[in-house]
Write a protein that binds this DNA or RNA. Structure first.
Lengths: 146, 146
DNA sequence: TTCGTTGTAACTCTTGAAATTACAGCGCTT
DNA sequence: AAGCGCTGTAATTTCAAGAGTTACAACGAA
């Protein structure tokens, strides 16, 4: 099982918004072209980002604005906005271990904190990167392409 | 998206094997009872653990032996044995960004190392815990239950 | 009012986990 | 050598979710 591609798509979206904002109006159709998927997929992701207050979307006209300074939006913020997982648990626990078994009725207590720590380590790593880093690295990389 | 419950089931299995080994023969049926699932599910997971050389399964008789000292088997070893994900990538990247778009053809380069670092942080955390820790904590916890 | 865009419902396709049934193969035990 | 309990595995079903697609109403600027 993997974390949805919607997360990398969201990061792709932010990169495009910043990279193209002076040259094109960045619409869901335009983004769908760069990402190579369906505009409706993009709109759904944009809606999630809007619900998390990360962006503002202009209705009618179209166009996307990032609500906060790029240096204050981390990959983790994007991840949280996108991943709809129930109580945000990365690991799926087997539902109903047997309460009559000493192991079965204690396995949750034994594992929960360790799984949470592993998830936390991943999330802390995501917090290290901001959208500003991403934008700057994108500009650098594209500049050296020529 | 979440990591399969097969991972927590595998840890549950190891705990049972150690906890019950002197009192019961630990068969897939017995384990299925503690975990509350189907014996075939258990056997499939056992096969994965066997293929990773973590355990030996006695055919005919039944019964499970851990191949290495418990202190030398980490949660990460179990995780690797269980998760069959293609090239072990935790994050699923959108398949085919547009190569004609400067962002599209560079997005992989921009994100890959960061995603890998996040995954690595999670895996390193899993490496901190061994099956021996788990067994000892289980014994402690069950002892204090009474 | 028109036009380009967003918001969203409804549907299909595909994939994968999980569960279940069925049965062949193995190796003690007697 | 025959029976028995267990493992190995194929085949099938059920269910949930991601992804893609079509269709259309709602919005806002020109």
């Amino acid at each position: 099982m993997q974390i949805t591609s919607r997360f990398t798509i969201a990061l792709h979206i932010f990169t495009c918004v910043e990279y193209f904002k002076d040259d094109h109006k960045v619409t869901s159709d335009f983004l769908a072209g760069s990402i190579n998927t369906n505009p409706v997929i993009i709109r759904k992701i944009l809606t999630q980002l809007k619900n998390a207050d990360l962006i503002t979307i202009a209705r009618g006209t179209g166009g996307i604005t990032v609500n906060r300074p790029l240096s204050e939006v981390t990959f983790y913020d994007v991840y949280q906005a996108i991943e709809p997982v129930e109580n945000s648990a990365l690991f799926h626990f087997h539902e109903s271990p047997n309460p009559n078994c000493p192991v079965g009725r204690n396995i949750h207590t034994l594992l929960d904190d360790k799984l949470k720590a592993a998830q936390g380590a991943m999330e802390d790593e995501l917090k290290k990167h901001t959208l500003e880093d991403l934008k700057n690295e994108a500009l650098d990389l594209i500049a050296t392409e020529k």
